[in-house]
Write a protein that binds this DNA or RNA. Sequence first.
DNA 1: CGGCAATTAAAACAAACGTTTGACTTATTT
DNA 2: AAATAAGTCAAACGTTTGTTTTAATTGCCG
Lengths: 210, 210
Amino acid sequence: MDKSTTKQRLLDVAEKLFADSGYHCTSLRKITAEAGVNLASVSYHFGSKEALVEAIFERRLRPLNEERLGRLEAVRADAAAAGRKPTAEEALRAFIEPTLRFRDSAPGARYFLHLIGRALTEPDDAVRSIFFRMVGPLFALLFEVLTETLPNLSRNQVFWRLNFAIGAISRCTFLPEKLPVVPPGVELEPSPDLQIDMLVGFLVAGMEAS
Amino acid sequence: MDKSTTKQRLLDVAEKLFADSGYHCTSLRKITAEAGVNLASVSYHFGSKEALVEAIFERRLRPLNEERLGRLEAVRADAAAAGRKPTAEEALRAFIEPTLRFRDSAPGARYFLHLIGRALTEPDDAVRSIFFRMVGPLFALLFEVLTETLPNLSRNQVFWRLNFAIGAISRCTFLPEKLPVVPPGVELEPSPDLQIDMLVGFLVAGMEAS
DNA sequence: CGGCAATTAAAACAAACGTTTGACTTATTT
DNA sequence: AAATAAGTCAAACGTTTGTTTTAATTGCCG
C-alpha cells in the first residue's frame, strides 16, 4: 500500500470507505487521512469528489460489465447457432456468475460490490446517474434475452420479474454488517459458487413460474 | 395542510423529502422551508433531526408492523387449528399484502414506502438501526414460519431465500424515478393487487424450488 | 383582563464540508 | 546544470450543516 501512488491509494481507500459508510457520509478528509495523503490531492488527481466516485465505478465496473455483456451475447449466439432459444438459467448465469465471483477476483473488489449493492437506491442523483449510465445497456440486453427465453410472459411481466431478480441479487452484493436478525446456523458469507447455486435456483424457478 | 399543526406538517414534509432525496441529502432548512415553519421547530418538537426521522418511522411502521405480525400469527394459528403446516404462499402473502396495499392506505404513505425501500441500504448507522430495530421481530417471525413451511430446506437455505425475497419486495417499495432502462409497454406503477400477484407468484416458486 | 405556559420567530453558534490558493518539493526534460 | 513540469503541502476560502439561544408571540385558564 505504501509503494502505490497517491492516485491509486485514493481509489482504494475511497472505495472501501464509500462502501462502508456511503457517499455522503464519507468526507474527503476521512479518505485522505486514512490514505495518508494530502486533502488537496483529490482535487488535483480527480477534480472533485464526484469525479472520484466516478473513477471508482469506472475502474471496476467497466471490465465487469464487459464480461457480463460478452457472456450474455455468447448465450444468445450459442443458442442461435444450435437453432434454439436460450434458457432463463443460461441468461441469469451469464449475469450472476461474473457478478458474484467478482468478490474474490481482486483485493478490494468486495468493497466495490458493497458499493454497487447500494447504488440502486443511492440518494444522490449524480452518483446514481453515474451507475445507471454504466449498467443501462447491460440491463437492456438482459431484458431482451429474457423476453426471448420466456415467450409466454408479457414484456411487463418480464420487466417486473427482472426487477425482482435484481433486488434478490443485490442482497448478495450488499448485506449490512448489522442485520435485523441473524438466526443461528446461517452462513453470512457463503462461497461464490454456493451463493450462485442458491441464487440461480431461486431465480430460475421464479422467472419460469406459470 | 395549512390547518394542521407544525408538528404534523414537519412529519409530512420530512417524510416526502427524505423519501425523495434520502436522509443526509435533505437538510432541516429544506424541510422547514417547504413546511412553512421555523427552523428551530424541529429542535423544539422532536429534539433532533435523527429523532424526527425516528418519529416518521414510528408513525407509519408501528401500525404496519402490527398488521403484518397479526397476519403472520393468524397464518400460523389457522394452520395449527387445521392440523397442518402453513404454506409458503400464506406466509408470504401475510407479509406482502399489507406492505403493498399500504401505498394507497393514506396520503403520504407512498412516500414512506419509498423511504423504507431505501432503509435496507441506508448509509447512516443510526437511521438504519432505527429501522432494523423496528422490523427485527417481524423478520424473525417470518423466518420461523418459513422454516416450518419448508421442512426440506436447511435454515441457511431458508435464510438466504428470505433475503432474496426481501430484496425482490424492496424493488416494489422503491423504484427510482430515473431507471437505467424502461422498455416500452411496462407499467411502472401497477395496482397493488396486480403487483401482489406478480410478486407472490415469483417468490412462492423461488421459495419452493427444489 | 391579567398571567402563565406553550409555541414560534429571528439570529447566531461552532463544526464540518468540498474546494481553492500559493508556496514548496520532487521528477523529468532539454 | 538549467528549466520546465508534476506533485505535494499547509492554510484558508466561502458555504452549509444541525443545533442553541433569546426574544416575541400566541393561546388558554382563572
